[in-house]
Amino acid sequence: MERALLLSLNEERRARRAAIVVTDLETGSGRLVRQAEALQDPLDEALREGFRSGKSRQIESDGRTFFLNVHLPSPRLVVIGAVHISQALAPMARIAGFELDVIDPRTAFATPDRFAGSNLHADWPQEVLARQPLDAFCALAALTHDPKIDDFPLQAALEAGCFYVGALGSRKTHARRLERLAANGVPEDKLQKIRAPIGLDIGASNPAEIAVAVLGEVIAALRGKGPGAAG
Protein backbone atom coordinates (compact mmCIF):
# COMPACT_ATOMS: atom_id res chain seq x y z
CA MET A 1 0.00 0.00 0.00
CA GLU A 2 1.24 3.49 -0.85
CA ARG A 3 1.71 5.78 2.13
CA ALA A 4 -0.39 8.49 0.45
CA LEU A 5 -3.27 6.01 0.17
CA LEU A 6 -3.04 5.16 3.87
CA LEU A 7 -3.10 8.85 4.79
CA SER A 8 -6.13 9.56 2.54
CA LEU A 9 -7.93 6.56 4.02
CA ASN A 10 -7.26 7.74 7.58
CA GLU A 11 -8.52 11.19 6.65
CA GLU A 12 -11.81 9.71 5.37
CA ARG A 13 -12.14 7.61 8.52
CA ARG A 14 -11.55 10.60 10.77
CA ALA A 15 -14.22 12.57 8.88
CA ARG A 16 -16.67 9.66 9.36
CA ARG A 17 -16.99 9.03 5.61
CA ALA A 18 -17.26 5.50 4.19
CA ALA A 19 -14.42 4.40 1.88
CA ILE A 20 -13.22 1.20 0.20
CA VAL A 21 -9.61 0.31 -0.53
CA VAL A 22 -9.36 -1.78 -3.71
CA THR A 23 -6.16 -3.82 -3.94
CA ASP A 24 -5.12 -5.76 -7.03
CA LEU A 25 -3.78 -8.93 -5.40
CA GLU A 26 -1.49 -9.75 -8.36
CA THR A 27 0.24 -6.40 -8.72
CA GLY A 28 -0.25 -5.11 -5.19
CA SER A 29 -1.48 -1.74 -6.46
CA GLY A 30 -4.24 -0.12 -4.43
CA ARG A 31 -6.68 2.75 -4.73
CA LEU A 32 -9.28 4.49 -2.58
CA VAL A 33 -12.93 4.69 -3.63
CA ARG A 34 -15.32 7.07 -1.86
CA GLN A 35 -19.03 6.30 -1.80
CA ALA A 36 -19.97 8.94 -4.40
CA GLU A 37 -17.32 7.60 -6.77
CA ALA A 38 -18.60 4.00 -6.77
CA LEU A 39 -21.14 4.56 -9.57
CA GLN A 40 -18.49 5.61 -12.11
CA ASP A 41 -16.18 2.76 -11.18
CA PRO A 42 -15.61 -0.36 -13.32
CA LEU A 43 -16.25 -2.41 -10.16
CA ASP A 44 -19.39 -0.42 -9.33
CA GLU A 45 -21.67 -3.34 -8.46
CA ALA A 46 -19.23 -4.93 -6.01
CA LEU A 47 -18.38 -1.54 -4.53
CA ARG A 48 -22.02 -0.59 -3.96
CA GLU A 49 -22.61 -3.98 -2.33
CA GLY A 50 -19.60 -3.30 -0.09
CA PHE A 51 -20.86 0.11 1.00
CA ARG A 52 -24.28 -1.39 1.68
CA SER A 53 -23.19 -4.47 3.65
CA GLY A 54 -19.97 -3.19 5.19
CA LYS A 55 -18.40 -6.58 4.35
CA SER A 56 -14.85 -6.75 3.02
CA ARG A 57 -14.25 -9.46 0.43
CA GLN A 58 -12.19 -10.79 -2.45
CA ILE A 59 -13.70 -10.54 -5.96
CA GLU A 60 -12.78 -11.62 -9.50
CA SER A 61 -13.20 -9.18 -12.38
CA ASP A 62 -11.83 -9.52 -15.93
CA GLY A 63 -9.61 -12.38 -14.84
CA ARG A 64 -8.04 -10.35 -12.04
CA THR A 65 -8.41 -10.77 -8.31
CA PHE A 66 -9.14 -7.75 -6.14
CA PHE A 67 -9.60 -7.32 -2.43
CA LEU A 68 -12.19 -4.77 -1.38
CA ASN A 69 -11.56 -3.58 2.17
CA VAL A 70 -14.65 -1.71 3.31
CA HIS A 71 -14.16 1.00 5.95
CA LEU A 72 -17.45 2.26 7.35
CA PRO A 73 -17.39 4.95 10.04
CA SER A 74 -16.74 3.46 13.45
CA PRO A 75 -19.86 3.33 15.57
CA ARG A 76 -20.31 6.34 17.81
CA LEU A 77 -22.16 6.15 21.11
CA VAL A 78 -23.72 9.37 22.31
CA VAL A 79 -24.62 9.26 25.98
CA ILE A 80 -27.04 11.84 27.34
CA GLY A 81 -26.36 12.31 31.03
CA ALA A 82 -23.04 12.42 32.88
CA VAL A 83 -24.48 10.08 35.48
CA HIS A 84 -23.05 7.15 37.43
CA ILE A 85 -24.00 4.62 34.73
CA SER A 86 -22.22 6.78 32.12
CA GLN A 87 -19.01 6.77 34.19
CA ALA A 88 -18.88 2.98 33.79
CA LEU A 89 -20.25 2.96 30.24
CA ALA A 90 -17.68 5.42 28.86
CA PRO A 91 -14.50 3.33 29.34
CA MET A 92 -16.28 0.08 28.42
CA ALA A 93 -17.58 1.54 25.15
CA ARG A 94 -14.17 2.94 24.25
CA ILE A 95 -12.54 -0.45 24.79
CA ALA A 96 -15.24 -2.03 22.60
CA GLY A 97 -14.21 0.33 19.76
CA PHE A 98 -16.90 3.00 19.97
CA GLU A 99 -16.28 6.68 19.58
CA LEU A 100 -17.99 8.23 22.53
CA ASP A 101 -19.55 11.53 23.54
CA VAL A 102 -21.09 12.29 26.92
CA ILE A 103 -23.45 15.26 26.98
CA ASP A 104 -24.95 16.87 30.08
CA PRO A 105 -25.73 20.56 30.61
CA ARG A 106 -25.59 20.12 34.40
CA THR A 107 -22.05 21.24 35.20
CA ALA A 108 -22.14 19.53 38.59
CA PHE A 109 -22.36 16.19 36.76
CA ALA A 110 -20.29 16.92 33.66
CA THR A 111 -16.89 17.38 35.29
CA PRO A 112 -13.61 16.30 33.68
CA ASP A 113 -12.67 14.54 36.94
CA ARG A 114 -15.61 12.18 36.64
CA PHE A 115 -15.02 11.56 32.91
CA ALA A 116 -11.27 11.49 32.36
CA GLY A 117 -10.46 10.47 28.80
CA SER A 118 -14.01 10.99 27.47
CA ASN A 119 -15.33 13.54 25.00
CA LEU A 120 -17.38 15.37 27.59
CA HIS A 121 -19.72 18.23 26.67
CA ALA A 122 -21.13 20.35 29.53
CA ASP A 123 -23.75 21.78 27.17
CA TRP A 124 -27.33 21.23 26.13
CA PRO A 125 -27.75 18.37 23.63
CA GLN A 126 -29.33 20.87 21.20
CA GLU A 127 -26.03 22.75 20.97
CA VAL A 128 -23.73 19.75 20.84
CA LEU A 129 -25.80 17.87 18.25
CA ALA A 130 -25.96 20.95 16.04
CA ARG A 131 -22.15 20.91 15.94
CA GLN A 132 -21.83 17.11 15.65
CA PRO A 133 -25.00 15.78 14.03
CA LEU A 134 -26.18 12.23 14.63
CA ASP A 135 -26.11 9.74 11.75
CA ALA A 136 -27.00 6.11 11.00
CA PHE A 137 -23.68 4.95 12.51
CA CYS A 138 -24.59 6.48 15.87
CA ALA A 139 -26.24 4.96 18.94
CA LEU A 140 -27.91 7.19 21.50
CA ALA A 141 -28.51 6.31 25.13
CA ALA A 142 -30.57 8.83 27.11
CA LEU A 143 -29.75 8.30 30.78
CA THR A 144 -30.92 11.38 32.71
CA HIS A 145 -34.68 10.56 32.75
CA ASP A 146 -35.17 14.33 32.80
CA PRO A 147 -37.44 15.28 29.88
CA LYS A 148 -35.81 18.71 29.57
CA ILE A 149 -32.51 17.01 28.73
CA ASP A 150 -33.51 13.65 27.19
CA ASP A 151 -36.47 14.43 24.93
CA PHE A 152 -34.71 16.54 22.30
CA PRO A 153 -31.84 14.09 21.61
CA LEU A 154 -34.24 11.13 21.59
CA GLN A 155 -36.31 12.77 18.87
CA ALA A 156 -33.15 13.81 16.97
CA ALA A 157 -31.83 10.22 17.14
CA LEU A 158 -35.08 8.78 15.78
CA GLU A 159 -35.08 11.33 12.94
CA ALA A 160 -31.41 10.70 12.07
CA GLY A 161 -32.00 6.92 11.86
CA CYS A 162 -29.51 6.05 14.62
CA PHE A 163 -28.97 2.28 14.70
CA TYR A 164 -29.83 2.25 18.40
CA VAL A 165 -31.95 4.52 20.58
CA GLY A 166 -32.38 3.65 24.24
CA ALA A 167 -33.88 5.52 27.16
CA LEU A 168 -33.58 4.98 30.89
CA GLY A 169 -36.65 5.22 33.07
CA SER A 170 -39.46 3.20 34.59
CA ARG A 171 -42.34 1.98 32.46
CA LYS A 172 -44.42 4.87 33.81
CA THR A 173 -41.73 7.43 32.97
CA HIS A 174 -41.42 5.91 29.52
CA ALA A 175 -45.19 5.95 28.89
CA ARG A 176 -45.25 9.69 29.64
CA ARG A 177 -42.19 10.18 27.44
CA LEU A 178 -43.92 8.46 24.52
CA GLU A 179 -46.95 10.73 24.97
CA ARG A 180 -44.77 13.84 24.88
CA LEU A 181 -42.81 12.70 21.81
CA ALA A 182 -46.03 11.73 20.00
CA ALA A 183 -47.51 15.14 20.81
CA ASN A 184 -44.34 16.61 19.34
CA GLY A 185 -44.99 14.86 16.02
CA VAL A 186 -42.87 11.69 16.27
CA PRO A 187 -44.72 8.93 14.38
CA GLU A 188 -45.73 5.72 16.18
CA ASP A 189 -43.39 3.42 14.17
CA LYS A 190 -40.41 5.52 15.25
CA LEU A 191 -41.48 5.59 18.89
CA GLN A 192 -41.49 1.77 18.85
CA LYS A 193 -37.74 1.85 18.10
CA ILE A 194 -36.84 3.29 21.51
CA ARG A 195 -35.44 0.53 23.73
CA ALA A 196 -37.01 0.98 27.12
CA PRO A 197 -36.45 -0.16 29.77
CA ILE A 198 -32.90 0.28 28.53
CA GLY A 199 -30.39 -2.59 28.37
CA LEU A 200 -30.40 -6.34 27.92
CA ASP A 201 -32.27 -8.22 30.62
CA ILE A 202 -29.32 -9.63 32.57
CA GLY A 203 -30.60 -8.75 36.02
CA ALA A 204 -28.24 -5.77 36.26
CA SER A 205 -28.44 -4.35 39.76
CA ASN A 206 -25.92 -1.50 39.96
CA PRO A 207 -24.68 1.26 37.63
CA ALA A 208 -21.73 -0.71 36.24
CA GLU A 209 -23.90 -3.75 35.51
CA ILE A 210 -26.52 -1.55 33.84
CA ALA A 211 -23.68 -0.14 31.69
CA VAL A 212 -22.82 -3.70 30.59
CA ALA A 213 -26.50 -4.33 29.76
CA VAL A 214 -26.70 -1.11 27.72
CA LEU A 215 -23.45 -1.77 25.85
CA GLY A 216 -24.57 -5.34 25.11
CA GLU A 217 -27.85 -4.04 23.71
CA VAL A 218 -26.04 -1.45 21.56
CA ILE A 219 -23.72 -4.14 20.14
CA ALA A 220 -26.67 -6.46 19.45
CA ALA A 221 -28.34 -3.64 17.48
CA LEU A 222 -25.11 -2.87 15.61
CA ARG A 223 -24.61 -6.49 14.60
CA GLY A 224 -28.24 -7.02 13.64
CA LYS A 225 -29.07 -9.32 16.54
CA GLY A 226 -31.40 -7.03 18.42
CA PRO A 227 -35.18 -7.33 18.65
CA GLY A 228 -36.79 -6.49 15.32
CA ALA A 229 -33.64 -7.47 13.38
CA ALA A 230 -34.25 -9.41 10.19
CA GLY A 231 -33.34 -13.10 10.42
Binding site: R94, F98, E99, G117
Partner: peptide, 10 residues
Protein backbone atom coordinates in the same frame (compact mmCIF):
# COMPACT_ATOMS: atom_id res chain seq x y z
CA UNK B 1 -10.63 7.86 21.95
CA UNK B 2 -8.86 4.86 23.41
CA UNK B 3 -9.25 2.77 20.27
CA UNK B 4 -7.18 5.20 18.17
CA UNK B 5 -4.15 4.08 20.12
CA UNK B 6 -4.70 0.47 19.06
CA UNK B 7 -6.16 1.03 15.59
CA UNK B 8 -3.74 -0.65 13.15
CA UNK B 9 -4.18 2.00 10.42
CA UNK B 10 -3.62 4.92 12.80
Amino acid sequence: PENHRTDPLD
